[in-house]
Design a protein around this nucleic acid. Structure first.
Lengths: 347, 347
DNA sequence: ACCGCTCATGTTCGCGCAAACATTCGTCGC
DNA sequence: GCGACGAATGTTTGCGCGAACATGAGCGGT
């Protein structure tokens, strides 16, 4: 009895419109519109007649027509680069959920490369005429002065806007890096080596800076910064070099995957974790608890980041532009597992 | 000289329309439309005048109006569940890229739960009135007979449609599982244990079935199937049980993350990989090569899956429905690393 | 010189929706 | 008892675009 009128016959027909519902329910299409939008000023009996007609025809409102009439799309754009990066994928999922809850849908543009043109293209595809606002996830590229985003489109940047040209939602990268470094120092390590992410990533730079500052403040020597590219592969390469040095007893990796590579290199070089060398990661990917040994790391709350992005963006959209840029910070959490231990006795 | 007319002043104005461009270029708005769509029948001089006017005003066509006029949205919907699953995220990224290349954008709906209602809701949000077609990624839920998708919307299922009610793009799960099992058997193991993914996943079922068949065919004993849930955590739990049994010398895990958990459990129980127990995973996540030891696994080509999904979907859209369902299979690849070795000499 | 053709361009119209305005009631106050 | 009001509903209109059709200019063949 539910989908009576949904003819299943061959040719693709025009889906039912308000007018069709109106005809069936014997009201004007405006009344259908009112019912569809939950307006109060419709008689109960009429409303039910309309609702039933909708059900019979399988009516769904045409979002394009709605967008055209309203000038609002009820759609958010998300620009991202690498969805194989765990954090980005998680953030996207959270954004999608939060947006759905607010009645928005999400249009993803996955830019291949981190070039200005690629971003600008992705952006112009989305912007202005198709979405009400945009979230840019981890846009290392936003650093570059050259990037000019069209004005008038609300933009939120997740984790990547060093100059605060846009509103942004950030992990408190500094706090996380400080916690990691302090944790190792407190364990008695003379100093802490840092294998950082690529320096065109603002997150990576902030983690590195906080690590540097924490060492300085503690009066510890500051070893040279080692630069990876977020991959386990780069961690493995750098880890091999670090493993060769006896004076390395504590390593803070820029993310969990690099930590994994480092641990493999250490293992291959016969240096035990955590007895000889302590390792801390960053992200707390779900598998981190099952590395060998389970990884001490900094947990990021991606769900919260996604929620905040959407909430900030919606505020900005509703305010109709001209809002001061805001910065929301989500605190990370040190999660101690089995890769960190007190410093080995000094030979 | 590029964005002259893009006034940066306060209030949000209506973005420029074809009519505005037409007025500036002193042509009809239809001519602007023709230029915007790259039609041939426009004089070169006129075309340039229009293009320059577009540039000056920063014109972008309104996708809602376009969709309304054309009855086509140039947008694909993607329904997915868990973006923290590596494969899903990768597939989504590939779909997004392929869609963009074809001039489509991608609307993601990330359903929270795998319930029929959740899917149906996500689906109806997207369907009919907002997208031209839908890709469902790994929809374990499609199994259930109860699920009724609205007719008339082209649907492609990535890796999850056991009854072939829709066109789908699949990994050749069977081939992968056979390769994994054979590989272990060839190494001299008497039999192979399988830690499968949850059995409401079609992929998981197919892998398990192929493992079973391969053992049978080889005349090997078929150990009881162990059921995990794709997480490293479940792998760890089951791994602990398996580690306690001396007769377990070869394990085929349903995915790399469970393999990781299994390896940790083995390690904790003092059983060496690969000397005592060989392990094979499935997926080849980027970190698999850096597990301790590096994991032998089955590589899936997510890029290709994404591309195929889009290509199939576009075909179906262009054909206007009424096409026979197709099944495209993407072959996986056995990648041998360090977790597999010849069977230990039998005590 | 005239017909018939092609090509560039203009005009009209409708896609489906909701805002704004118009209309019809019934109801309340004095 | 009559005007003022408000609630339910209908009518008109335009959002921006492109299909379909109309126009008009230029050109070749006979």
């Amino acid at each position: 009895m539910t989908d009576l009128g949904v003819s299943t016959s061959g040719a693709r027909r025009r889906p039912p419109s308000q007018a069709d519902v109106a005809a069936l329910a014997d009201v004007s299409s405006q009344t259908v519109s009112r019912v569809a939008n939950g307006r109060a000023n419709v008689d109960q009996a009429t409303r039910e007649r309309v609702l039933s007609a909708m059900r019979i025809l399988g009516y769904q409102r045409n979002s394009a027509a709605r967008a055209l009439a309203l000038g609002r799309f009820h759609m958010l754009g998300v620009i991202t680069f690498d969805l194989s990066a765990h954090g980005n994928a998680r953030t996207l999922a959270a954004i999608s959920r939060a947006a759905q809850a607010a009645g928005y849908s999400v249009n993803v543009a996955c830019a291949e490369e981190q070039t200005e043109t690629a971003v600008q293209q992705a952006f112009s595809k989305l912007s202005g005429q198709a979405v009400d606002g945009v979230v840019v996830i981890e846009a290392q590229i936003l650093d570059r002065q050259g990037l000019r985003l069209p004005p008038g489109v609300p933009v939120i940047v997740a984790d990547g806007d060093p100059e605060h040209r846009f509103s942004s939602v950030d992990n408190n990268q500094a706090a996380g890096a400080v916690a990691a470094t302090r944790h190792l120092l407190d364990l008695g390590h003379r100093t802490v080596w840092h294998v950082a992410g690529p320096q065109d990533s603002y997150s990576a730079r902030r983690r590195a800076a906080a690590w540097h500052a924490t060492l300085k403040e503690a009066g510890a020597a500051v070893p040279p910064l080692r630069l990876g590219d977020w991959t386990a592969r780069s961690g493995h390469r750098i880890g091999a070099e670090l493993a060769a040095r006896d004076d390395v007893t504590a390593i803070f990796a820029g993310n969990d995957h690099m930590a994994l590579g480092i641990m493999l290199a250490l293992h291959e070089a016969g240096r035990r974790v955590p007895e000889d060398v302590s390792v801390v990661g960053f992200d707390d990917v779900p598998e981190a608890a099952y590395f060998i040994p389970p990884l001490t790391t900094i947990r990021q709350d991606f769900e919260e980041i996604g929620r905040q992005c959407v909430s900030l963006l919606l505020d900005q959209i509703d305010a109709g532009g001209g809002v001061a840029t805001k910065l929301v910070t989500v605190p990370p959490l040190l999660t101690v597992r089995a890769t960190t231990a007190v410093a080995p006795a000094t030979g």
